[in-house]
Design a protein around this nucleic acid. Structure first.
Lengths: 218, 218
DNA sequence: CCTACCGATCGGTAGG
DNA sequence: CCTACCGATCGGTAGG
């Protein structure tokens, strides 16, 4: 749709499917901004400026600001599920799958350029109710991966401080998932990956400690 | 400072130290609103309306909106520390103290009228950096109560999935605290106390499950 | 995707 | 603590 008139201020890319690229750029920039200062404190002008647009132009790609938030969360779940399913293929035992789930989830939360799920956790409140249903439906798929794995491990008596000794203490997989994922998700509030190596943990170390804290290693 | 002229629209209380009461009412109403829709999405007009004031009047009690947020968090820490110290007095063993810490923390997070700490967790990002230092200083006192207790329990080999079997697995108290409090704090995102008894957990049951998940019971 | 703009709202203030 | 108000900003739109 480019017209052979004067070149626009922000030069567009040369390839044919520019639109999808620009939309992706908006999603990525929004994720970074939302993660940093929150959805409500981020203005559409901030988002536009981050990708070199003028203030009204994001609305060419999204109907309103809330749709950007929804797109950020969807992108996070899509990427997260993708990474997790791929990583799980190499893991043959329940214990190995647990290690993969934990390590991959930390990557999803803390890798550079992977701010989408942190935004989901932080700004869930700001998502309109109509959108929540759709996101929950996708999130359920991810939660099921965890819950199935935890169900196996609970059956083996490998999870929790008491399960190995007292079978009555076996908790159901859902509450177990909420406890473990809660502990991991809460790292978004305190984990900083900035100056690693100075005595702070990198994600491998953090994942290892987490695994060892929650799972018995026979 | 009341003048014997016409009665104001919103009738003031009759006692002498009205000001402190009104300030407290603002803090409580703000906590409820912040918890529900977030600091950024709550307007000063919302807050004023919730206590029957006009839009400009909260600024008679607070210099700006951020100071209200700070006051909410301070109030939460003050109340939280107070409740916890009192509750700990009856607990004589490390195990008993852990149970008290967990149950009291759930109350702090979920009791009606106790939205302050949930606001601290949710809206920490919105607090100006200058204020953060003061809040952290108070919060450190609370964290120390937990960390000391967890240090004892770790020494006894009662915390974590492996500590009883492998002394090398004993994690330091800080990471242990972050994991356990993370799991508990994360309940602010999913726990609903609305229709208890229908198969959902009340806070006693939730605390019991949490304790049993994290602490070995010999 | 830009230009140019608008109506609404927001935090905050002066003056009593 | 109210009345009356202001400057700034915000999400969003028309028209090209």
């Amino acid at each position: 749709m480019r017209k052979p008139t004067q070149p626009p201020a922000a030069l567009p890319a040369e390839d044919g499917h520019d639109e999808a690229n620009r939309r992706q750029a908006l999603i990525r920039a929004s994720a970074r901004l939302f993660r940093e200062k929150g959805f409500e404190a981020t203005t559409v002008r901030d988002i536009a400026a981050a990708v070199g647009m003028r203030s009204g132009s994001p609305f060419y790609h999204f109907a309103n600001k809330q749709e950007i938030l929804k797109a950020v969360m969807e992108e996070g779940l899509r990427q997260g599920l993708d990474r997790t399913v791929k990583a799980l293929q190499a893991a043959k035992t329940p214990q190995a799958r647990f290690r993969v789930l934990v390590r991959t989830h930390y990557g999803i939360l803390h890798d550079e350029g992977s701010e989408f799920i942190a935004v989901l956790l932080y700004d869930w409140r700001s998502l309109p109710d109509e959108y929540k249903q759709e996101i929950i439906a996708v999130k359920d798929g991810y939660d099921r991966l965890w819950q199935d794995n935890l169900g196996e491990l609970l059956g083996l008596g490998l999870i929790g401080a008491n399960s190995a000794h007292d079978p009555r203490a076996a908790q159901d997989a859902k509450v177990t998932r909420l406890m473990i994922m809660g502990a991991i998700n809460f790292t978004v509030t305190w984990y900083k990956h900035e100056h690693q190596g100075k005595g702070t943990m990198d994600l491998d170390a953090l994942a290892e400690r987490t695994v060892r804290f929650f799972m018995r290693e026979d």
